[in-house]
């Protein structure tokens, strides 16, 4: 499980960085999106369920309950998703405007 996740994270990061190094603004934004997905998956693997096998929860007897995933990483990911959702909407609007003002999608034209 950890290996599959690690490979997926690696692929997401590689794709993200490749896209971000292109000159097109749209590809840059797609790269940022992929990057945030990669980070979300990375946080997921940092949960106790994947790395150490037990979430930080105890039942009434003080023992770790069976079949419970680490809820904290899920909360963290949800927060990160919400934030990246809002930021993506903003960046898209901004790129659209910049595209209108500059008349090009090329970052090399985005100079004053």
């Amino acid at each position: 499980m950890t290996l599959i996740l690690a490979i997926s994270i690696g692929c997401l990061f590689a794709g993200a960085i490749y896209l971000m190094l292109r000159r097109s603004v749209v590809k840059l934004i797609l790269g940022l999106l992929l990057l945030s997905h990669g980070v979300n998956l990375l946080i997921f693997t940092m949960g106790d369920g994947v790395r150490r096998g037990a979430p930080p929860i105890v039942d009434d007897a003080g023992l770790p309950p069976a079949n419970v995933a680490d809820p904290l990483v899920q909360a963290l990911i949800l927060t990160a998703i919400v934030i990246s959702f809002g930021l993506t909407a903003f960046v898209l609007a901004l790129a659209y405007r910049a595209n209108q003002a500059v008349g090009s999608d090329d970052l090399n034209d985005m100079i004053e």
């Binding site: 980070v39 940092m46 904290l72 910049a98 004053e112």
Partner: peptide, 26 residues
């Protein structure tokens, strides 16, 4: 718009790295 795009992208990358660090420290 042009300056803002650079500012936004750079800060987004910075925030993402912060998030990676936060996840790893957890």
């Amino acid at each position: 718009l042009v300056g803002g795009l650079k500012y936004v992208v750079l800060n987004l990358v910075g925030s993402t790295v912060f998030l990676i660090g936060g996840g790893m420290i957890y």
